[in-house]
């Protein structure tokens, strides 16, 4: 676990894996995985995805949860270069009650912190569908620079939409602690979800 201000990064297992079967079929997932074909994801697809990410040598999927252990969603870095130390970063609020909250934003900050302060990457890249104002605002608030627009790039709901591209260099990152001090994140005090049934049985 890596402890943050409002959320902690944890392994993507146990109740996260149980929640993912629902999360992978929600709009938040498809807005994050912008090239996904919006096919229904079965429990087997979910299992395969988690296994793929566990074996991924160029990236990882982590869960992020509130300080009282309520799973919010996932953060991902992927496609890390072997010569140029850069990676794509993605985050999603599977529990949509957290969409646009400071908890979700802190998940992104924690991912950036991990990539720069632990993995020592040089550059991070983020992408957001042009209408995804929450994601765009979060990238900008985290210090990313808007680097351009892939025009009419993704098929979405009967139309072609643009993808906004963002980049953040390591030297532009003031550090997680400085960001937290400057931004004054506030907890949304959302009531934690009941634990998934399978876990309750285990206990």
């Amino acid at each position: 676990m890596i402890e943050g201000h409002l959320v902690d990064l944890v392994p993507f297992e146990d109740d996260f894996a149980i929640h993912l079967a629902a999360w992978m079929n929600e709009e938040a997932w498809f807005r994050t995985m912008i090239y996904d074909r919006r096919e229904p994801h079965t429990e087997n697809d979910v299992k395969k995805y988690i296994e793929k990410m566990e074996k991924n040598k160029r990236g990882a999927l982590f869960g992020y949860q509130t300080k009282n252990g309520d799973p919010i969603g996932g953060v991902i870095y992927d496609y890390q270069g072997d010569r140029v130390w850069k990676a794509d970063v993605m985050s999603f609020a599977g529990d949509t009650r957290y969409e646009g909250t400071d908890e979700q934003f802190d998940g992104l900050l924690m991912l950036i912190r991990y990539c720069f302060e632990t993995r020592n990457l040089y550059r991070l890249e983020g992408a957001a569908l042009a209408f995804d104002t929450v994601k765009i605002e979060q990238f900008q608030r985290a210090g990313f620079t808007h680097e351009g627009t892939l025009r009419q790039h993704i098929r979405w709901g009967g139309d072609y939409v643009a993808v906004e591209m963002f980049g953040l260099l390591h030297r532009e990152w003031p550090g997680y602690d400085s960001m937290i001090e400057a931004l004054g994140l506030q907890s949304s005090a959302i009531e934690p979800k009941p634990k998934p049934e399978k876990l309750e049985k285990k206990d």
């Binding site: 850069k86 680097e147 351009g148």
Partner: peptide, 9 residues
């Protein structure tokens, strides 16, 4: 469409 700063060495 996009200029990704310092993405290539």
């Amino acid at each position: 469409e996009v200029r990704q700063r310092e993405a290539v060495y």
